[in-house]
């Protein structure tokens, strides 16, 4: 009885989740006016949409920089925040606890408020229009530090002590013992960071003032900026822009769940 209700609920949720995605995929194969008329069946305009898209927009450039920024952010974020999370837990003191609480306030800062000062800072560094300026503010988030810190709680301290007696340096312990065992946490952090970096919207538009460096969300707004919008081509671009983040999740979803589990044990 209950399991029937469960399947019904799951089916509803799954259909509601996937349907807009289906619409997105189908629309990529339809002409502009068909998309506007909400045509639900696949059409024949996929190739044409692709040709228009490649002809009108620097798709390759945007893909390259989106990937560079998302991968760069992810790698650096994992490196920096895992070290910090480990430090908070393994070298736990009251002072560090308080400091952690203070850093957590950073989650609550609205980005729109810090944008102007940030821009001025990057201007002084000569980093306007550099992908590094997109990556830097996204590397160290209090949330990821907290995730790694929580995950480190389940990490047995005896192993660390044993390693210290064996004469390993603290950094070596971190790299050789902690990192390999915490792989799922890294996967979870990677999914979260990659998705956020890939879809980052407001900041790249502001700091990347030259079109030599562009990201996919920027390209999507470019397509909608003119007097006439080709909705078929737009939907294809939307699809292309959505796929990588989905694929990253699909590839890492097993470890993702495990990693989050590790963090709340």
């Amino acid at each position: 009885m209950q399991s029937v209700a469960g399947y019904v609920f799951l089916t509803l949720a799954a259909v509601a989740s996937v349907f807009p995605l289906y619409f997105m995929v189908v629309s990529a194969t339809n002409s502009s006016n068909e998309v506007l008329a909400s045509k639900l069946l696949p059409g024949t305009h996929l190739l044409e949409n692709f040709r228009t898209l490649v002809g009108a927009q620097p798709l390759g450039v945007a893909l390259w920089y989106s990937a560079l920024i998302a991968v760069g952010t992810t790698i650096l974020a994992l490196a920096v925040t895992s070290v910090a999370g480990y430090g908070f837990e393994v070298f736990h003191t009251k002072a560090k606890d308080r400091f952690m609480g203070f850093l957590l306030l950073g989650i609550m800062i609205p980005f729109a408020a810090t944008m102007i000062p940030l821009f001025r800072m990057f201007g002084d560094l000569g980093l306007v229009n550099s992908w590094i300026a997109v990556v830097l503010p996204a590397i160290s988030t209090p949330f990821l530090v907290m995730l790694f810190r929580q995950a480190s709680r389940s990490f047995p301290h005896e192993i660390i002590e044993a390693a210290r007696i064996d004469g390993l340096k603290e950094l070596q312990i971190f790299l050789r013992i902690y990192v390999p065992t915490m792989r799922p946490t890294f996967a979870a952090a990677a999914v979260i960071t990659f998705m956020a970096a890939w879809n980052n919207f407001l900041w790249p538009k502001v700091i990347l003032v030259n079109n030599d460096v562009q990201t996919l969300p920027m390209l999507l707004t470019n397509i909608q900026a003119g007097y006439v919008t080709d909705y078929g081509m737009l939907m294809l671009a939307v699809l292309i822009a959505s796929l990588p983040a989905m694929l990253v999740f699909l590839a890492l979803q097993k470890s993702f769940a495990q990693g989050i589990t590790g963090a709340i044990k």
Binding site: Y65, I75, L76, L78, A79, V80, S82, V83, L125, G126, L127, V128, N129, S130, W131, I132, V135, L136, L171, L175, V179, N210, D212, V213
Partner: peptide
């Protein structure tokens, strides 16, 4: 990479270029 990249990043930031700034 975890160990090396922050260093590289710091250098890039100080260098004020990073190769992509036209």
């Amino acid at each position: 990479m975890a160990a090396v990249l922050p260093l590289g990043l710091a250098l890039a930031a100080c260098g004020g270029g990073g190769g992509s700034t036209a």
